[in-house]
Nucleic acid binder design. Sequence first.
DNA 1: TTGTAAGCGTTATCAT
DNA 2: ATGATAACGCTTACAA
Lengths: 342, 342
Amino acid sequence: MTKTPPAKTRATGRATLAEVAARAGVGAMTASRAVNQPDKVSPELRARVAQAVAELGYVPNRAARALASARSKVIVVLVPSLSNLVFTEVLSGIQKALESDGYQILIGNTRYDDAEEEKLLGTYLQSSPDGILLSGLKHSKQVEQMLAAAHVPVVSMMDLAASPDVFSVGFSQELAGYTMTRYLLDKGRKRIGFMGAQGDERMLKRAAGYRRAMEEAGLYDPALVTMVPDPSTIALGAELLGRMLAAAPDTDAIFCCNDDLAHGAIYQCQRRAIAVPRQMAICGFNDLPASAWMNPSVTTIATPRYKVGFEAASLLRKVIDGESPPVRRIDLGFTLMARESA
Amino acid sequence: MTKTPPAKTRATGRATLAEVAARAGVGAMTASRAVNQPDKVSPELRARVAQAVAELGYVPNRAARALASARSKVIVVLVPSLSNLVFTEVLSGIQKALESDGYQILIGNTRYDDAEEEKLLGTYLQSSPDGILLSGLKHSKQVEQMLAAAHVPVVSMMDLAASPDVFSVGFSQELAGYTMTRYLLDKGRKRIGFMGAQGDERMLKRAAGYRRAMEEAGLYDPALVTMVPDPSTIALGAELLGRMLAAAPDTDAIFCCNDDLAHGAIYQCQRRAIAVPRQMAICGFNDLPASAWMNPSVTTIATPRYKVGFEAASLLRKVIDGESPPVRRIDLGFTLMARESA
DNA sequence: TTGTAAGCGTTATCAT
DNA sequence: ATGATAACGCTTACAA
C-alpha cells in the first residue's frame, strides 16, 4: 500500500521548452528566443513557436531560467509592518516601478524585529535576488554582514543616509519631527509632549527633531516625553494619553509619532471631555486617510510613501542594470497638513 | 570599450554545495543530506559539513533545488487589496502557518481586478508553486483554466464554497449580511439602507443577505440600496451618505458593507449634525480597530481573518503533503459587535 | 538568423 | 551511511 502513486519520472507535468521547440519544428534556442527576445527570430518561426506555446500551454520555468542565466529577476523587499498603510503604499510604488520588467517581488515583514529581519534575509537570499529594498538605515551587524557577503545592490527607503555612498530614498525624519514641533511652538504652545511607540528608528529620529526644537526654545522637559516599545495602535494612543497627563498634567499639546497614536489620543480626550485643540492640541504623523475626516480633523505630516517606493525601486533597477546613478540619495520631502486638531 | 567586464564564468560568486563538499572532504550528496536531512548523516561528517558551510558562507540555491527536486516550496497568495487590514491579517495567519516549513510566500495584489488576477497568476505560475491560496470563490474563466491546467492544490479564503469538493476556509458572507440586517430590524429600524462599494463578490453576498432579511420583513425597497464600483474609503462613505439621504430621506439606519464606509458615513453625519444612532443608526463590517474607539463606537461584524489565513494555509499544507483532509470546507463564523452606533 | 554543446547548483536514484 | 551519475529546464557561448 504505497502512499505516493508510482508515477515514473513525471516531474512537473508541464510542457518544456524542448517540447515547444519540437512541436514548432525548431531548435530549443530558437524557441527560447521567440519567447524572450522575439525580435531576434524571423516572423515565421516566431509565429510557429507562438502557436506551439499556445497549444501546449507552455509556462516558462523560472527556476530553470534563474539557474541558467544567473539572474533571478527577484527583488527582495523588507518592511517592518504590513498592517501599516505607510508600508503597503510603499509596496504599491515598488510594484508599479517594477511591474513592466518581469520582476518578482519577495515581501518580508520584519515586524520591527532585528532577529526576524535576519531570518527573512537569510531565507530570501536563497532566492538569489538581483536587488534588495530595505526600510530604514539601521540594521543589525548580522544583516550588514549578510548584505555585504551577498554582493547584491541595496537601496534603503524612508530615511536619508548620512553617507553619500549609500543608496537611500526618503526624507529626513528628524527634520519632519523638528518641523512639526516648531509648528506647535509657533501656535503658542509651551508644554508640548512627545508620544512615541514601536521604538523604531524613524520614531527615534522624529523624537530627536522634537527635542532639538524644544531645546532651541528652551522648553525641553523629559517629563513631557512618553515612549514605549509596544506596537503603536489606536488603543495605545488612548492609553498613553492617560500616562502623559499623569506625568505632566499641564501638557497643552502632544506630538504623536504617528497617526494611530494621535487618533487614539483624540478619542480618549473626547471621552474625558478634554477639548481638542482648545485645551489640548494633538498632531500626528503620516496623514492616514482618517486624519482628514475625523472630527476634529488631524494636523499631521503627509509623507510621500508611494513615491518613496516608486523612486527607490527605480533607482534599484538602474543600479542592477549597471548604471551609476549620479544621485544616490533622493530627498522626497514631506508636507505639514495643518488641520483642526492643532 | 565593453560595458560588461570580461569576467570569465563567475556565475553567482556564491559558494556551491560542491565546494562545501570538497572542503569537508565528502561527496556532494552527503553535503546535501547534511544540510537538509541531518539525521541521515553520521554525526562526524555532519559536523565537518557544518563547519565547511560556515567557513564558506554557503547559502543554498533555491532555484537549483526547485529544479532538481520538482518542489518549489513556494505558495502563491492572491489578495484583492493590501491597503485593507482584513487581508494583511489574513497574510499574517498564512505566514504563521507556513513559517516553519521553509515555504516562501508569493503575494499578489489583484486590486479587485480580474485582468490583474490573471496576469499575476500567469506570472506566479512560472515559479511552479506547490500550492495556491485565493481570496473568494468567483474567478474569471481564464483563471479557472490556468488553475486547472496547473495541477496545483488551491484553497479559497474568506467565503464558503457551495460545492463540498472545493477547499474553502471562511464564513458565510451572506449569513453575516443577513444577521446584521436582522439586528437592525430587531432594534426597530424600518428604513434600513445598504451602502456598498468595490463591487466585489463578498460585498454582493452581504447585500444578498441584507435583501433576504428585508424581504422577509416585507421592508425591502430598492431605493434604499446604494452600490458603487469605486474602492471603498472613508471619503466614499461620507459621499455615499449624501446620496443615500437624497434618494431616501427617511432612511433611519444604514448597513455599510465595510467599516471604512461606516466611518465615513458617521463622520459625515457629525458634520451634518445628524445624531448617531438616534436619528440614524450606522453599522459596518470587519471590525477594524478604529471601530471600537471612535465616538460613537461602531456596531460591526468581527471577522476571523487571521484565523482564516492560518487555517487555510494549514489545510493547503495538508493537501500538498498528500493527505486527504476529511473536511474541505471550514466555517470559522463571525461575531456581531453591538456598540454605540446602532 | 538558427542551432549545437555545455553547464547552471541541486537532488533522485541506485549502488556500494 | 555514503557516493557516483544522471537528470531538472533553461540559457550562455559559440558555430554554422
